[in-house]
Write a protein that binds this DNA or RNA. Structure first.
Length: 802
RNA sequence: GCGGAUGUGGCGGAACUGGCAGACGCGCUGGUCUUAGGAACCAGUGCCAACGGCGUGCAGGUUCGAUUCCUGUCAUCCGCACCA
């Protein structure tokens, strides 16, 4: 029995639009609740079934919370800056803003067809000048507080395309577009001092309710390690520092390794005897990505820096210095001490280059592999070959060696963080222009705030320049301007901001989306307080989410937002894979277009299916067969309407199940167990179906519980039986006492193996149960001795026999 | 390399703090109704040499009892700083 879902869905979508059913009112007396999904990048390929999964999940929460009496903010917008739009524009000679406008229209239409309860009155795009004005304004605040600076750093460069490449586009050291070999090129870039916030970003996690794996992801990305920075003298003058977390092995140093891309090797160059060899190695290193370089199996390359020796500060021993590509110029000090007996990477390097090794911690043989800290820490291992520290445990030695070196003034206890400053420049057209002006006389000057927004110019070509500058550099009447300071001739910064800029604060803008005086008013932000529930992909844990937290913490520190953390709960969804269990992609031909599914089966079917397909946080493959099961589920509910007969309240025999189901669905929706929520409703439907008759109230509670997931058909059926619209109704309540069964099926085990089950009364005493159990399984106990009996109330009865 | 996650029937997946493994759905088998079935309904469906035994990647361990806890091991997927 097919129903006309197209008509029904359109009808209710129109109703919600007309009534503004989902408009959130800032300042409303009801308790605020802010539900957020990551706003999409409106790509040319349209909404993905993966979007549908997370938007439906959050929609279900938003709809339930509204019925529970909250003032729910569930907004949607567009993260529309970025290189795909720019690439598309280069190819087709249209302005990216036109392509973006088209794409947004498509996305929005698709979302409307799916019935998401977004508050469309707060919609904006990061590419709107009214929005990016404030992104630029906030950049100026970073600059004015000393948080933005220019630095020269290496970028991936394709000499053929004359373009800066992302690591993704430069994967394998080859340009994705033209296949040319990618090289590293020095470029001056705007940076944000994010590393200043490393400790705060770590501590701030305590004030959030992020999922553990999200917290862990951030903690690892920040990568705090506590250790010692040690000064090392060079024979014949000069010095450098190394960072180590294993100072206890300092007597085992047999050589040092310095980064090929670091500053030290350049300083030493005049004194190096084998310049040719060293330069050649530096060049080779420049062509490798960090990942290639730190890979253990590839980490043995390098060469000695001849003519220069370093002095081990603890014992005055002269040891050689090597170049190695596993040492990164931009992590730590760009130099490491090498203790081959106690670090596997050093060990392999030493073997490959035939270098000396010296064991300084006792407890394992180090002739075939290193005895590393993971194996010796906390095991009471003692030092050997370490002068006055010989005989101390590793833990004691760590402290006393550090103390000695610190007292001597040649070492410092420091925290080191893997997280680096944020490279904020992009040599692209389609991003927020960085509102900075360069004057020969006055240097870098910020634009005046009242001159914002600095608009992207309208031009026809978006090709980058010969030397890899943003296409903006070609637009001379835009570039040439006057210095805000001396009013002389000056040039604009032609780099733009990264895509992450606009998405770092959009959730604040949703709180006060059309404010033209401030990025958002303090009152509005205080009212909404925090994003209560933020959903996004796990892949954004280390990037977007961390950038956003950094941005907010900075705004908090300068008094512009009410909380240091503006996001309370962060959860992540799994991907929707193709039916072949692989990531959906055009090339694999396994892409499912949500429009097709909505056309053939309706939005409600798609929504139920995507909630039912599996654990929300886990990837799940698409199955059109399973989708049909959800279509049948709806048909079954429609047929149930014919069973409605007179009668008030819940049917007596259904009451317990109904109360249990309310509890189950409510709990499941708040713990993202959407699949079992649907399953519980299927069980309820199956049970209703077994009845001769059901009451209107039985049916109504079913429709209410399913409404957050399948809003259209439930509204329609609900109207047909004469109730007011569900979007204006309340969530049902359950009575805990009615969810408890009076009779329980008790499993009986003998020696841990299930033998029988018996029905018992939930409040029966143990003696009664024991008798019943023995009575039931007496034949199985014949000739056996009972060793032990275990009864777990209302759970299990286990008898151990010999 | 670093970091994260996952492994349960033919398939997607359930199983609360250790307590009936396989809920729910798909698929499949047989039947009813029907001009018809990509509709609905009824019965069945983990595996095997089936009154019993075996089963949650693999090998051990703890326990009266392990998908769940511990040790080791194998495999797969994802992220890694200019893709969003």
């Amino acid at each position: 029995m097919a129903y006309n879902f197209k008509e029904v869905e359109k009808k209710w979508q129109k109703y919600w639009d007309d009534k503004e059913s989902f408009k959130a009112i800032t300042g409303d007396k009801k308790e605020p609740y802010y539900v957020l999904v990551e706003f999409p990048y409106p790509s040319g390929s349209g909404l993905h079934v993966g979007h549908v999964r997370s938007y439906t999940a959050q929609d279900a929460i938003a709809r339930m919370k509204r019925m529970q009496g909250y003032n729910v903010l569930y907004p949607m917008g567009w993260d529309a800056f970025g290189s795909p739009a720019e690439q598309y524009a280069i190819k087709n000679h249209i302005h990216p803003k036109d392509a973006v406008k088209e794409n947004i229209k498509t996305f929005k239409g698709q979302m409307k067809n799916l019935g998401f309860s977004f508050d469309w009155s707060r919609e904006f795009s990061t590419t709107d000048p009214e929005y990016y004005k404030w992104t630029q304004w906030q950049f100026l605040q970073f600059y004015k507080h000393g948080m933005a600076y220019k630095d020269t750093i290496p970028v991936n460069w394709c000499p053929t395309c004359k373009s800066v490449l992302s690591n993704e586009d430069a994967a394998g050291g080859v340009c994705e577009r033209c296949g040319a070999k990618v090289v590293q090129k020095e470029k001056s870039q705007w940076m944000l001092r994010m590393s200043n916030y490393a400790e705060d970003l770590l501590k701030g996690l305590d004030d959030t309710n992020f999922a553990d794996k999200v917290k862990l992801g951030q903690i690892n990305w920040i990568g705090k390690s506590t250790g010692v920075e040690l000064d090392v003298q060079i024979v014949g003058g000069g010095s450098f520092s190394i960072f180590t977390t294993c100072i206890e092995t300092v007597y085992g140093i047999t050589f040092f390794v310095i980064a090929a891309d670091g500053k030290l090797v350049k300083e030493l160059m005049p004194r190096i005897q084998n310049k040719d060899e060293v330069n050649k190695y530096i060049e080779e290193t420049a062509q490798k990505t960090n990942m290639d370089r730190t890979d253990l199996n590839k980490g043995k390359t390098g060469c000695e820096v001849k003519g220069i020796k370093a002095i081990n500060p603890v014992n005055g021993k002269e040891v050689p210095i090597f170049l190695g590509d596993f040492v990164l110029g931009d992590y730590g000090t760009g130099a490491v001490m090498a203790v081959p007996s106690h670090d596997q990477r050093d060990f392999e390097y030493a073997k490959a280059h035939n270098l000396e090794m010296l064991q300084v911690i006792d407890g394992a043989d180090t002739s075939n592999c290193a005895f590393e800290k993971t194996d010796y820490l906390g095991k009471g291992c003692k030092l050997i070959n370490s002068e006055e520290f010989t005989g101390l445990t590793v833990e004691e030695a760590k402290k006393s060696i550090t103390k000695k070196l610190v007292d001597k003034g040649i070492a410092r206890e420091v925290n080191n963080y893997k997280m680096r400053d944020w490279i904020f420049s992009r040599q692209r057209f389609w991003g927020e222009p960085i509102p900075m002006i360069y004057c020969e006389k006055c240097g870098w000057q910020p634009m005046k705030e009242e001159d914002l927004p600095l608009l992207l110019p309208d031009v026809a070509e978006y090709e980058p320049t010969e030397n890899g500058e943003s296409p903006l550099a070609n637009i001379t009447d835009w570039v040439n301007t006057t210095c805000p300071c001396c009013h002389g001739p000056a040039k604009r910064e032609t780099d733009t901001m990264p895509n992450w800029a606009g998405s770092s604060w959009y959730f604040l803008r949703f709180m006060d989306a059309h404010n033209d005086k401030e990025f958002a008013s303090m009152d509005a932000m205080k009212y909404w307080n925090k994003v209560d529930w933020y959903n996004g992909g796990m892949e954004h844990t280390a990037r977007h989410l961390l950038y956003a937290r950094f941005w907010v913490q900075f705004l908090y520190n300068i008094g512009l937002v009410p909380n240091k953390e503006m996001i309370w709960t962060r959860v992540s969804h799994g991907m929707v894979l193709g039916s072949n269990n692989e990531k959906m992609s055009k090339s694999k031909g396994n892409v499912i277009n949500p429009d097709d599914v909505v056309n053939e089966f309706g939005a409600d079917t798609l929504r139920i299916y995507e909630m039912f397909m599996g654990d929300y946080q886990q990837d799940a493959p698409w199955s059109t067969d399973s989708l049909k099961g959800c279509s049948r589920f709806i048909d079954k509910i429609i047929r149930l309407k014919d069973k409605i007969s007179d009668g008030e309240g819940y049917s007596k025999n259904l009451e317990a199940l109904i109360h249990k189901t309310i509890k189950k669905v409510q709990n499941d929706l708040t713990t993202m167990a959407y699949n079992t929520a649907v399953s519980a409703l299927m069980i309820l439907v199956n049970t209703f179906d077994e009845q001769e008759n059901i009451t209107k109230d039985d049916y109504h509670v079913l429709l209410t519980l399913l409404n957050p997931i399948a809003p259209h058909i439930t509204e329609e059926l609900n109207e047909q039986i004469g109730f007011k619209p569900l979007c204006e109704s309340s969530w049902p309540t359950y009575d805990e006492s009615k969810t408890i069964d009076s009779e329980i099926e008790l499993p009986i085990q003998v020696n841990g193996k299930l033998r029988k089950t018996i029905m018992i009364s939930a409040n029966a005493d143990e003696e009664t149960i024991k008798n019943a159990v023995h009575n039931e399984i007496s034949s199985l106990l014949d000739g056996k001795t009972i060793v032990k009996e275990i009864y777990v109330k209302n759970k299990i009865y286990n008898i151990v026999v010999k």
